[in-house]
């Protein structure tokens, strides 16, 4: 189908974009990579009055290291994150996740900020941001504020970003030297929306899980920290008994949404399977034996 009528403005500065957001509020949509927005327009699932194209705002692009923080401009394209030496050295979780973000042609246009700001429940980058404890920097015409990832994702396509704010930067703490990370997801076709997915990030000594964070995505309305599963995991040796305990605890963390890809029960099962595989891999990456 064809997109409905709208107005189009190419922002020539962040200030310009923020002025337009102040003026139009929820009637405006930010056009970043457009890889999720354009399909909704073409299918007439959304009908904004105005698109604010931020693609020429070079100040929102780029990846740099600021002490122990990897700073990624919101408009940085997925392909640039995938190929970044800074990211692969300091955020191996993100590098491992990136090939799962759609397909080549979409990674060439889609942006990390767009993915996080949209907060599609099946998206990889919101889950990585939550697993790594990233900080989201949003800006309105009055200034910037920082939002911890733990407080950013509110629900299905809902975030802490106000309608007059632009996500400008994502600040990831570098992976700690003794930590390991694992990213896994299941989908029907490589690159399609995940049915179930997990990010594991933390410390393993030998076979003992010292301090692991588990973040689940795709099955829920937003990325979710598996608090009960983590409580059943940390401080224990990774074993069949621990796996069973974590699986049982996970039922208190997740409330999967059924859809065409599967029932709630199937998704819960898949998240348990992924938890087992992710922890096997985490232990192996930490140098332990199974």
């Amino acid at each position: 189908m064809k997109a409905p009528k709208f107005s189009y403005v190419r922002a020539d500065s962040v200030e310009h974009a923020l002025e337009l957001l102040d003026k139009h509020g929820d009637d405006a949509r930010i056009l970043a990579g457009g890889q999720s927005l354009m399909p909704t327009l073409n299918m007439r699932l959304s009908q904004p009055e105005i698109l604010i194209d931020i693609n020429r705002l070079n100040e929102l692009k780029g990846i740099s290291l600021d002490g122990d923080t990897v700073v990624i401009g919101a408009l940085t394209r997925h392909v640039e994150v995938l190929n970044s030496d800074i990211v692969s050295a300091h955020l191996p979780l993100v590098t491992e996740a990136m090939p799962y973000v759609a397909h080549v042609a979409i990674r060439n246009r889609g942006t990390i900020g767009g993915s996080i700001a949209l907060s599609d429940p099946a998206a990889e980058m919101p889950a990585c941001a939550l697993a790594l404890g990233a900080t989201l920097v949003v800006q309105n015409s009055g200034g910037k504020r920082e939002i911890p990832a733990e407080q950013f994702f509110h629900g299905l396509y809902e975030t802490a970003r106000a309608e007059n704010e632009l996500l400008v930067e994502i600040r990831f703490p570098s992976q700690k030297k003794d930590n390991v990370s694992v990213f896994m997801e299941l989908s029907r076709r490589h690159g399609d929306y995940a049915i179930a997915g997990i990010c594991a990030y933390g410390k393993v000594t030998g076979e003992t899980i010292d301090d692991m964070r588990l973040v689940y995505f795709a099955s829920e309305d937003r990325p979710v920290i598996g608090e009960h599963a983590i409580a059943a995991l940390n401080g224990h040796a990774w074993s069949e008994e621990t796996k069973d305990a974590v699986s049982a605890a996970l039922e208190n963390d997740l409330d999967p949404m059924a859809n065409l890809n599967g029932s709630a029960a199937m998704k819960l099962h898949l998240q348990k399977v992924l938890t087992g595989r992710a922890m096997d891999t985490a232990v192996s990456r930490a140098g332990g034996t199974l």
Binding site: Y8, P39, D53, H103
Partner: peptide, 26 residues
């Protein structure tokens, strides 16, 4: 026409992109 099939792939400034997910204005 919503970015799934890839039949519209074209190259823009050296990168292959979905031609249906990019406005001509962009």
């Amino acid at each position: 026409e919503h970015g799934v099939c890839g039949a519209c792939s074209v190259r823009v400034d050296g990168d292959v992109v979905r031609g249906c997910l990019l406005l001509a204005a962009q």
